[in-house]
Design a protein around this nucleic acid. Structure first.
Lengths: 224, 224
DNA sequence: GTGTGTTTTCACAAATTAAACATAAATGTA
DNA sequence: TACATTTATGTTTAATTTGTGAAAACACAC
């Protein structure tokens, strides 16, 4: 699979390098921009940028302004780097559609964890009704699941369950939570019914069935 | 972890029960008030209420008035239940600081989704379940612990215990306190059980296992 | 009604974890 | 140092959770 592209915007080259290094070490592809104008240009030229990390403090055009311009056209996830986050900032950021903050100085682990969390969130919310994970494609409108080139025949419940897993990939889901979302809220059946569906899903999905991981004592998690 | 408390205000007990049921099934704690005065009283008595769901149409004091009184002192998120939302209503609500509307009749999914969205927003943008200490990162959503670059496989209890330690780093924790938080309050087993888990945690954590320090005659403390 | 496919329940085996126990090691105290 | 306590650790036992196959319940078309 293609590496995920991240655009890092900061006027300080040292900071850009720092962030870039962490991300590259975690298998991301990194583009750099040293000011807002360049960032906006790059973003509109390269449609495959999956995430933007934006420093707030920049000469000429500050991070908020960059955010505003990009948000006028795109819902791409944006993470803001701030010296320290005040409530004011958070409120402003929220109105502008910022997805996450990271306060400087930050640890590499936090940076990567936040990046992953934001990407995870944004994955589920694709513009149309098509979800995907690895080589699995789910067309919610047509109720069709494809793995690789081949279409997989799933029953209604199996489909709903898989779609829910993919919408929440990377997140550990308890049986209770799954029941509430995939079944109706007024369903009072046995939670073990999920196990049976998971079993059938795994067997129908072939090797990709292993994407559905058991979290012992907790529930399940979908992860490629 | 503590459940999130939601105050539901409606004069019709049937409607209260309906909303309450949905919320409880999603692991919220629900308080009820049957009129505005009671709602305001309850809110100021219980500081831990995280969200208020307010019916607009109520005898004596209507939802708008309740909202006004609460907003005079608090920024607690408020969701309004309306028969049908007119632009007028929205404008008024917006001025009063209403966070969200739900039109009756509503589906349980919509209710819970809105509640979750509002709570997420109110927690600040960065509401991700990521803890860290030194080079240890804990992603509570994904149920993943990373030390340095490497992922560590922990059992359910081990994960919960480590998360609790990291959430309370630097604080000396007695066995009793640990039992009450990581195990259930109604757990009456041997407190020495903790020792066994600490042992396994330390061994799985390698050198970082030493972050879990023994406080002789007292309990344990996590510190980098 | 019959037949077909789906969903749910159930029972039991397999896997995994949690708890208990026994003993060794460490710590604090007189 | 000797003794009492407390903690660490390796091992054993018990309990819990999950996987699986099969049967029962259900839904729906014919």
């Amino acid at each position: 699979m293609e590496k995920t592209k991240i655009l890092v915007v900061d006027d300080e080259s040292r900071m850009r390098k720092l962030v870039k290094d962490f991300l590259i070490r975690n298998n991301y592809e990194v583009l750099e921009a040293e000011d807002g104008a360049q960032a906006v240009d790059m973003f509109f030229e390269d449609q495959s940028i999956a995430l933007i990390i934006l420093d707030v403090m920049m000469p000429k055009m500050d991070g908020w302004q960059v955010c505003r311009e990009i948000r006028a056209y795109s819902k791409v996830p944006i993470i803001m780097l701030t010296a320290k986050t005040t409530e004011q900032d958070e409120l402003l950021g929220f109105q502008l559609g910022v997805d996450e903050y990271i306060s400087k100085p930050f640890s590499p682990k936090i940076l990567v964890a936040r990046v992953e969390a934001v990407l995870r969130r944004s994955k589920g919310v694709s513009s149309d009704n098509i979800l995907s994970a690895g080589d699995i494609t789910i067309d919610k409108a047509a109720h069709i699941v494809t793995i690789g080139e081949k279409q997989v025949e799933l029953s209604y419940k199996e489909f709903e369950l898989l779609a829910y897993f993919v919408e929440n990939q990377g997140i550990a889901l308890s049986r209770e939570v799954i029941l509430n979302h995939v079944w109706n809220y007024d369903y009072f059946g046995d939670a073990r019914t999920i196990d049976t569906h998971v079993k059938k899903l795994r067997s129908k999905m072939g090797p990709q069935g292993e994407y559905i991981k058991t979290i012992w004592g907790m529930g399940y998690k979908f992860e490629c």
